[in-house]
Every structure is written in C-alpha cells, then in structure tokens.
Design a protein around this nucleic acid. Structure first.
Ligand SMILES: [Mn+2]
Ligand SMILES: [Mn+2]
Ligand SMILES: [Zn+2]
Ligand SMILES: [Zn+2]
Lengths: 142, 142
DNA sequence: TACAGCTTTGCAACTTTGTTGCAAAATAAA
DNA sequence: TTTATTTTGCAACAAAGTTGCAAAGCTGTA
C-alpha cells in the first residue's frame, strides 16, 4: 500500500513517532479535497480517538509544518495540508483561500499568488491572508 | 452633548429602541480606535450588562449594518464600525484589515482598496477579505 | 403624564470549543 | 526483551456562544 508508506514516511521525516491517531488523521487529510475543521476530523474518525488527542495531533501537525491553519470569514478554525515545503515553525503557504458558499468547502488555491497591497505610511505588513468566498468549480458547473 | 445625540440618532435611524446597553456599546465603538472583541466590550462595560445582552447587541448591530465582523488569522471574532453606508443585511465594507503584532490592535484601512484576484476556471468570487498583519504606525514610529 | 403593547434584558441552563494534569498505554531505542 | 521516552484517554475545568422565559424597560397614543 503506497499511501500507508507515504504516511509513515511523512511522520518519520518530521521526527514524530508513528501512532494510530497520527496515521489516521494524516490519511484523512491526504484523502480529502479541501480543508478540515476539528469537528470534521472528529466526525470522520468516530469514537476511534479522544477529542483531546485530535486537538493535540492537529497542533503537532501545525507545529511540524505538515498542515496549516486557514482564517475564515465565519471565524472557525480550518486546517489543510501544506503543499509548499514548510518546516518546523516555518510556514510559507502564501496562497489564496477560497470558501464555497454552496458546499462550504475551503480550498487552497495554491497557484493563486497573494497580491501585494500598498499600505498607508507607517504600517509595515509581514503577512497577508486572502480569503475569497463565492461558488466553487464543482458547484458552479452543473 | 453632541456624541449622545449622534448615538441616539444612529439607533433611531436603524429602527432600534434606545436602551442603555445599545447606547453604551455604540459609544464604546465611537470612542475606540480599532476593532473590539466581545471580551473587550465585556471588560470595558464592567458589570453593567449581562454577557448575553452584549452578544445580542453586537449581533443586532451587525444585522443593522452599524458594525461589521472582521476575520482574523487567530480566528477570534472582532467588530468595527461600518464607515461605508451599510444597510440592514447589506454590508459593503470592502477594505483591507490590519492587525498589529505588537499592540494587537485591529485597524480598518478604509482607504486601501481590496485588490482584485484572478481565480482559476470555474471559481466565481463574491467577497474578498484581506487581513494583513505586521507593525502599525503607532508601534513602528518610536 | 399615564397606560397598553411590544421589545429588550437578565438569569438559568445548556452546548460547543478548547486547555491542562496525570496515570496508563504505546512507541522507539538499546 | 527490556527500558526510557512519548503519546493517549480520562477527568476536570475554562472560555465562548446559544436558547427560553419571566421581569423590566421602551415607545407611541391617549
Ligand atoms: Mn492553504
Ligand atoms: Mn473594517
Ligand atoms: Zn462548492
Ligand atoms: Zn500597534
């Protein structure tokens, strides 16, 4: 099974011990198109793991640069796989995020660059987040 | 007192009855540079109003187009006065938001336009939120 | 100014989301 | 296999947000 190997390798590469919860949750992200909230992970894994374990696993993955958090207009925390080469403590997922009003899926538009914005005098920007909401390609074309 | 008159007028104009909590909370927004979280309002008003009343007041103000919510990278809900002429159910606060990493103030950069972003085929954007974090003009110039 | 009708408030109770300490279980290294 | 380290589940807790309902407060009219 190629997926299982990938999962184990990813965990090893990030100096994480290979446990059931980490394998299962990472697998979930690899299988899912779009971002996942904590509650999504909880639903998908059923009673397999404790709520606290899911929190801790997500937190660990964020720290290691395996997943990144996504700010959303409704202020709920969502997570998605890092595609760029993020490393421990150093994320550089500089892409636009899209939330579909119809199916509520959150997409990482990895090929859409963050536009540069000219700020008023005195303001220095370090990080720019862009969240666009509307209709996604799946919901629009039908 | 010109402020008191403004406050009452704003409430009246939005077909809201004039109550202590609404007056006080609206006054707070008028006096404050930057956005406020629910917890900020709670702290600033002390024991004057119940937590639930604050939630309901903020909600009402958002519905009426008096204040708008701001998505933030740390996924906490913030509110700020609408400067544009927003009406019941119709917000058009199309400006950039800035969060200072130093003083944690959230600013509405009302004069900075939202840049237009070219989306991949099939995606239709309706609303774009831009949140920039960095150092604000107050924290930078000293 | 007083009153009736409608709106808002405070309280209680509850849900959801997230955090922490600690012993038991699982993993990794020897 | 054994031991040292890490991770997990549980319990307990804190913070954030929601809902129903009776009491209190507002508004328009008399
Ligand atoms: Mn992303
Ligand atoms: Mn704003
Ligand atoms: Zn969709
Ligand atoms: Zn600042």
């Amino acid at each position: 099974m190629i997926v299982e190997t990938t999962i184990n390798e990813t965990l090893r590469k990030n100096q994480l011990s290979v446990t059931d919860s980490r394998k299962k949750i990472l697998e979930l992200f690899l299988q899912t198109q779009g971002a996942l909230a904590h509650s999504d992970v909880e639903k998908q894994t059923g009673t397999l793991f404790d709520r606290v374990t899911i929190y801790r696993t997500l937190q660990t993955f964020v720290e290691k640069g395996i997943i990144h958090t996504i700010p959303t207009a409704d202020n709920s925390v969502k997570y998605a796989l890092c595609i760029d080469e993020c490393t421990e403590g150093h994320h550089h997922d500089n892409h636009v995020h899209f939330v579909c009003d119809e199916c509520n899926t959150t997409f990482c538009l990895t090929h859409v660059q963050i536009p540069s914005v000219k700020l008023p005098g005195g303001f220095t920007g370090k990080q720019t987040d862009v969240i666009i909401s509307g209709i996604c390609s799946r919901c629009g074309n039908q």
